[in-house]
Design a protein around this nucleic acid. Structure first.
Length: 562
RNA sequence: GCGCCCGUAGCUCAGUUGGAUAGAGUACCAGCUUCCGAAGCUGGGUGUCGGGGGUUCGAAUCCCUCCGGGCGCGCCA
């Protein structure tokens, strides 16, 4: 709908250029947007204001010329010039009727597009190290990444979802030692307890399973526990697989797993990619030695100080494998990479990018892209629930899903812009009342389903074709508002994709649900007049379709009854 | 101290990349069901857009500065 209108404006501008009203080289980016109030029509553009300067004309005069040059179209009912030179477009009812027809024709495809150009895109997210259960912060990252993947796929990108984890470093050593200590019956307050050990109770579960000789399954591999508490290496392998499996169970319960690929940091070493990356950085002359360590001159790329890449003991700092890892992404052919991380990792962004630039491989400066999410504060009974991963005893993602449900957890975590801190109110999320937006939206969907069930019970047939042919019977404000709301859906999906902001869909759905509830309350759908009845149901079903498609992009269910 | 993010109604948050009179939800008050599900609907008021400068036809949005909050600042990951 918006695209058709934009095309009309472009045609008018072409006409003005040919007529000499506009210089041939006058190309200004203009905005075509939904209006805030109905008085200003459905859409408005600032084209005349944006082009006034190059045209050496005043905005209102140019607006008049532009309006006069608009091609005839059944889309438009009225065009007005307002304020300093806005052009307001009032769409015809027929334009909205056409949109409703398209919704029903497209079904689950409605709102999908090809603007992504089939670009090979990777989204890396969650990427939690297997040292414990996932917490709510991982949950936020999981939904944001998952919804981004869904939205980008729906807008024509070729999306791969990847989970990267460290299965070999110092943290994993601590994990293995912690499990070993538990195997030996050492408690956290025992002086023999490892210094940076993981104190959470889940470590006991791992130890118990290891001693029992269980098999842990993760990422396509089975790891058999030897049961030998003295074999730290065996404990390490088992603990990693065990905790990865636990995370997978959590992610499955959250509707996020499985990922397309799981990438292990250890493979970067065994495949020699870390060494190779180091030697190439040296060969390109961006390194220097000092104090027995090898440094990368990241200050050449905007960092505030240079960074050690190989420590004086010969081992590498974490960021070198990170660079090597991103080289694999580049070599795997991803034209676009989006990394979703917690904002506490933002300091790594510049280092990784500096490392990639220093390799002189022709990687664009803006590659990879990052989406960061801020902290989540959890509230229960008006009090903050403190998180603390290393101490154990924190609110896990699993606890949250078990308590408030998958749908509400996902919706709450995706409804806010990811770069602002948010408060997760457990009491609100689990309340089954009109306070809770996720129920409000799902109820709108269920209500339409309920109407269709009611038709069935009364033995009434809905003639879809007749309904679509009789949409002009729907002239009320409620109906116009609902049609307008439905027609925004493709624009919202596109904006979410372009800005990497899936929360836009969450707010949109609430507004769409509002339009439907309002309509439902003001009008009876199942009426005697067959034409009106068929048309109203066609509109309701179109609304249901937009609700269902939007909920699907959020990974939230669209129930037929509550 | 330096870097990144944030500051919008009592509270939780939007604000379509610089547009028109800054919006929702919630809370509070008053109403609405012989009718397809009341998990709903209809009214009622709320702002120094943290403060101050600047850029321009026009700023919550961009720049500078100050205040306040979060995160990061290791030869940890």
């Amino acid at each position: 709908m918006k695209e058709q209108l934009r095309s009309l404006i472009e045609q008018a501008l072409d006409g003005l250029r040919k007529a000499g009203t506009l210089p041939a080289d006058a190309v200004a980016a203009f905005v075509l947007e939904r209006t805030k109030s109905r008085e200003h029509g459905d859409f408005a553009t600032n084209a005349a204001m944006a082009l006034a300067k190059p045209a050496r004309s005043n905005p209102r005069a140019l607006a008049q010329a532009l309006v006069a040059a608009l091609p005839q179209s059944t889309l438009l009912q009225k065009v007005e010039i307002a304020g300093p030179g806005f052009i307001n477009f009032f769409l015809s009812p027929a334009a909205y009727h056409e949109e409703v027809k398209q919704v029903l024709a497209a079904g689950a495809q409605y709102g999908r597009s090809t603007i992504g150009g089939n670009k090979k895109t990777q989204i890396e997210f969650v990427s939690a190290n297997p040292t414990g259960p996932l917490h709510i912060g991982h949950g936020r990252g999981a939904v944001v990444g998952d919804c981004l993947a869904r939205v980008l796929a729906a807008t024509g990108s070729d999306v791969g979802r990847e989970f990267y984890y460290n299965d070999a470093g110092a943290q994993i050593d601590n994990l293995a030692k912690s499990v070993q200590a538990r195997c030996l019956g050492i408690d956290v307050d025992d002086p023999r307890w490892p210094a940076d050990g993981y104190r959470g109770d889940y470590i006991k579960d791992v130890a118990r399973a290891f001693l029992a000789g269980d098999v842990a399954h993760a990422d396509g591999r089975d790891v058999q526990a030897s049961g030998d508490a003295n074999d730290l290496d065996a404990i390490r392998r088992f603990a990693v697989a065990y905790l990865r499996h636990e995370q997978d169970l959590d992610l499955q319960a959250f509707g996020v797993a499985p990922f397309d690929t799981y990438y292990l940091e250890s493979s970067l070493y065994t495949d020699g990619l870390v060494e190779k990356t180091a030697s190439e950085l040296i060969a390109h002359g961006h390194t220097f030695e000092q104090d027995g360590a090898l440094w990368l001159r990241t200050t050449d790329y905007g960092d505030d100080k240079d960074r050690v890449m190989r420590k004086s003991d010969g081992s590498y700092t974490y960021f070198l494998p990170d660079v090597a890892y991103h080289v694999t992404k580049w070599k795997r052919g991803y034209q676009r990479v989006i990394n979703e991380h917690g904002s506490d990792h933002h300091s790594t962004l510049m280092r990784v990018k500096a490392g990639l630039q220093a390799l002189d491989m022709g990687i664009p400066k803006g590659w990879p892209e990052y989406v960061l999410h801020q902290m989540v504060t959890v509230m229960r009974d008006g009090q903050e629930v403190k998180l603390g991963k290393r101490a154990g005893g924190y609110v896990t993602l699993r606890d949250l899903i078990d308590e408030v449900g998958r749908d509400a957890t996902r919706y709450f975590l995706i409804a806010r812009k990811s770069d602002s801190q948010m408060v997760f109110d457990i009491d609100l999320a689990r309340s089954q009342s009109n306070d809770n937006p996720v129920y409000y939206i799902q109820y709108a969907h269920a209500r339409v389903c309920s109407v269709l069930r009611q038709l069935d019970e009364r033995g009434i047939q809905w003639d879809r074709a007749n309904g679509l042919a009789k949409l002009d019977k729907l002239g009320s404000e409620h109906e116009a508002a609902l049609m307008a709301e439905i027609s925004r859906y493709p624009e919202v999906v596109e904006a979410a994709a372009l800005n990497l902001e899936p929360h836009l869909i969450a707010s949109y759905l609430r507004e769409l649900a509002y339009a439907l509830h309002t309509y439902y309350n003001a009008h009876q759908f199942i009426v005697e007049d067959v034409d009106v009845r068929d048309a109203r149901i066609a509109l309701a079903v179109a609304a249901r379709q937009a609700l269902a498609n939007g909920l699907d992009l959020l990974g939230v269910s669209a129930p037929e009854q509550m």
